[in-house]
Simulated assay, not measured.
Amino acid sequence: MDIHVNDILKMKKPHPCGSGEWLVLRVGMDFKMRCQGCGHEVMLPRSKAEKNIKKVFRDGQPVENL
């Protein structure tokens, strides 16, 4: 899966604050992401993050061909 820094990820399950969108801050073996609702930052293993991604937005447009 081709994820870049500053992509917005729409996840399958929402964050407890109610937002389901996350800003990618760092990629590698782990993803560092910031919740777009409350600003909470988390690091997730790549495998777990990729499994939970519903849609990817780059520059405000949905990314096709993941």
Rank of each mutant, 00 (worst) to 15 (best):
D2C: 02
I3A: 08
H4M: 12
V5T: 14
D7S: 05
D7C: 05
I8N: 02
I8Q: 06
L9H: 05
K10H: 14
M11N: 00
M11E: 03
P14D: 06
H15W: 04
H15T: 01
P16Y: 09
P16R: 10
C17V: 06
C17W: 11
S19R: 07
S19Q: 13
G20Y: 08
E21D: 10
W22F: 11
L23W: 06
V24L: 07
V24H: 07
V24D: 11
M29W: 09
D30I: 00
F31L: 11
F31P: 04
M33Q: 10
Q36A: 14
G37K: 05
G37I: 08
C38I: 12
C38P: 10
G39E: 04
G39Y: 03
H40I: 12
H40M: 07
E41G: 04
E41A: 02
E41P: 02
V42A: 12
V42R: 06
L44I: 04
L44F: 13
S47E: 15
K48Y: 01
A49G: 01
A49M: 15
E50N: 11
N52C: 02
N52M: 14
I53N: 00
K55S: 05
K55P: 00
F57T: 04
R58N: 14
D59K: 12
D59P: 00
G60E: 12
G60F: 10
Q61A: 14
V63K: 08
V63L: 15
E64W: 04
N65D: 11
N65A: 12
N65L: 14
N65F: 09
N65C: 04
L66M: 12
L66F: 13
